[in-house]
Simulated assay, not measured.
Amino acid sequence: MKINTTVLLTLILLTLMLGVGSASGFLGFTLGSMALKGVTTPDGRPLSKFNSNKGNNTQEGSRKPALAFLKEEDILQVVKSRINNKSKDNKSNKSAAEEIKISKPKPKEEPIAEEVSQPGFPVTAESEGVSMSVKSVHYSGGDLLLRVNMQNNSSDSVRFLYSFLDITDDKGRTLNAISEGLPVELPAKSGEFKGTISVPTALLDDVKQISLSLTDYPAQKLKLKLSDIPVEKAN
Rank of each mutant, 00 (worst) to 15 (best):
N4L: 01
T5V: 07
T6G: 05
V7N: 00
T10I: 03
T15W: 06
L16S: 06
L16P: 00
L18Y: 07
G19F: 04
V20I: 10
G21W: 08
S22D: 06
S22V: 05
F26E: 05
L27T: 10
G28L: 15
L31M: 07
S33M: 08
A35C: 03
K37L: 04
G38H: 11
V39N: 13
P42L: 10
D43N: 14
P46D: 03
N51T: 13
G55T: 14
T58K: 14
E60R: 12
S62L: 11
R63V: 09
K64F: 09
P65Q: 09
A66W: 06
L67P: 12
A68T: 15
L70T: 10
L70F: 03
D74V: 05
I75G: 02
L76D: 10
Q77A: 12
Q77E: 13
V79P: 00
V79I: 08
S81E: 14
I83P: 04
N84H: 09
N85G: 11
K86F: 10
K88V: 05
K88T: 05
K88N: 13
N90L: 13
S92W: 00
S92Q: 13
K94P: 00
K94L: 02
A97M: 03
E98L: 10
E98Y: 00
I100M: 08
K101W: 01
K104P: 01
P105H: 04
K106Q: 14
P107C: 07
P111Y: 10
E114C: 10
E115M: 06
V116K: 15
Q118H: 01
Q118I: 01
P122M: 01
T124G: 03
T124A: 07
T124C: 07
A125M: 13
A125S: 15
A125R: 10
S133E: 07
V134S: 05
K135D: 12
S136C: 04
Y139V: 15
S140C: 03
D143M: 14
L144H: 05
L144M: 06
L144V: 02
R147D: 13
V148D: 10
M150A: 09
Q151E: 11
N152H: 02
N153F: 09
D156H: 04
S157R: 11
R159S: 15
Y162N: 02
S163C: 00
F164Q: 14
D166G: 02
D169F: 05
K171N: 08
G172L: 00
T174S: 12
N176W: 02
A177F: 00
G181A: 00
P183T: 01
V184N: 14
E185A: 15
A188M: 05
K189M: 09
F193E: 08
K194T: 11
T196Q: 07
S198I: 01
V199I: 08
P200D: 03
T201N: 11
A202M: 08
L203W: 12
L203P: 04
L204F: 10
L204V: 07
K208M: 08
K208Q: 14
Q209L: 06
T215M: 12
D216V: 05
Y217S: 15
A219S: 14
Q220R: 14
K221R: 14
L222A: 09
K225Y: 13
I229Y: 02
P230F: 05
P230K: 06
V231L: 02
E232R: 15
N235H: 11
